[in-house]
Amino acid sequence: MTSLSVRRARSAQQAGHARGRLPGAGPGRWAVLAALVVLAVVMLLPFAIVALNAVKSPAEYSAGGPLALPHGIYLDGIVEFWNRVDFGRKLLNSLLVSAAVAVLAVVLSVLNAYALGVGRVRGRLWILVLFLVANTLPQEALAYPLYYIAKAVGLYDSRLALIIIFTVVQGAFGTYLLSAVLGNFPKEIIEAAEMDGASRWRILWRIVVPISRPTLNVLMIFFFIWTWNEFFLPLIFLISNDNQTVPVVLGVLQGERMMDATMSSASALLGIIPAVAFFLIFQRTLTRGVTVGAVK
């Protein structure tokens, strides 16, 4: 497409990736940009249409259709859906389960990875494979026994059961990842601390954890979001209305007869907002954490 003269290429090279200095293929480059922008619009369109129609009244929707701009902001659909399913409660449930799992799974991963990565206990390779397999197993192959055990020990329909299960599932992934990271932990630091008479426990919490902070923060965010997004096990375990999480209540109500067009889009919007909010909140930490990992 582009054949550059050597001189021009050199000057571009000197300027690093200089913007706009490359002689694009004339109108061709606008065509490429246009195609990519059209694709971006297609990707974003469902979000826009949902937001647009969540703030319309049902009458407005049937009169103007899904693409007409709303005459004003009509929030009754959202409010009514919120109240009908007690959405605040679902948000709290999701928040509680996801936050607890994020913290506990990171603690569990740190403990495991300390033994495997720093301690290099015997048979670590096989133990790591076990954790990896545990993380890849489909939840379907654990669901019924877990459901059965939870009923037997009185943890059915409780958020605690889900917290325990997801702590282990996410922790298995965290163990796998962190063991590799801690395997490269500078030995001199640990040996120096040992010389000073610090116990293993102290070394873990006072030295290893603070130094690995950026990685642990990224893991915690991943665990939070992954747990928030879980659907299958929460669907099975949380049957009472008071315990349900956001994806479960939205997934179960989808297509119910009581939902008209605008209320359905209101419910979709309520599912989208927290997810996009987390994305915006966490994005900085994630990019920073990923960069830190790369520099390492």
Partner: peptide, 10 residues
């Protein structure tokens, strides 16, 4: 960034 169930709802 959406929970896959929410993507289904959309």
């Amino acid at each position: 960034v959406l929970p896959v169930a929410v993507a289904g709802v959309v």
